[in-house]
Amino acid sequence: MLDLRSVTAGYDKRAPVFRDVSLSVAPGEAVGLLGPSGCGKSTLARVAALLHRPDAGTLHLDGTPVRHWRHRAPREQRTAFGVVFQQARLSADPRLRLADLIAEPLRATGRREGAAGRVAELAATVGLTADLLTRRPHEVSDGQLQRACLARALVLRPRWLVCDEMTAMLDASTTAALVRVVEDYRAATGAGLLAVGHDRVLLDRWCERTVDWAALTAPTTPAPTCPPGTNKVRRGN
């Protein structure tokens, strides 16, 4: 169970982005989080994925309370999540070829042997050809890069997937292909999913349960004033 209770988080403790938000995702469950741009749903997703320390509240992961975030979180907890971000260009290291990008988590966790085989297997799963794997991010399209980012998120076989507007910048066919890959992975492993987005139709069809951000909390500060997109790149804690 991924259980967020009364979470308050933001980038300025005096003016948090949201207060007292609670959300649970059961193992194997797919939950869609629906909300307008700038409301704080991406921040909540980052808190859930242990990438942003909340100002208040608790997070329980499979019954264990989470006490640390980012580098301070134990590696096993961090790698229990596979995260796919909205902007593939910003979430891919521009110096790494796609094969290295996908294999990076394996290398970072000391599992180099068998990395090539796992990369080839995942590339086939997400629909990347061998020649694309030798290219750098600026040499492929957004859709191809997002496929590589999804493969990177799956490479460590996470128990939880957090997709933060994964398909917002993609065409319908690529969206369908990526959602199919996620669903196939979930069917095979029983992983839970938190899909964040603002496309109600997509989330309703994709997820078993869709939660409206407005139902979780009312904004504590005047409605978010940040321009669209600025909430995607924030300094971590």
């Binding site: 242990l50 980012r70 790698t79 290291d93 970072a108 460590l156």
Partner: peptide
């Protein structure tokens, strides 16, 4: 502050 660093942190 860029997401590719978040991705690296999440990747262990």
């Amino acid at each position: 502050a860029r997401p590719h660093i978040d991705a690296a942190v999440s990747g262990g």
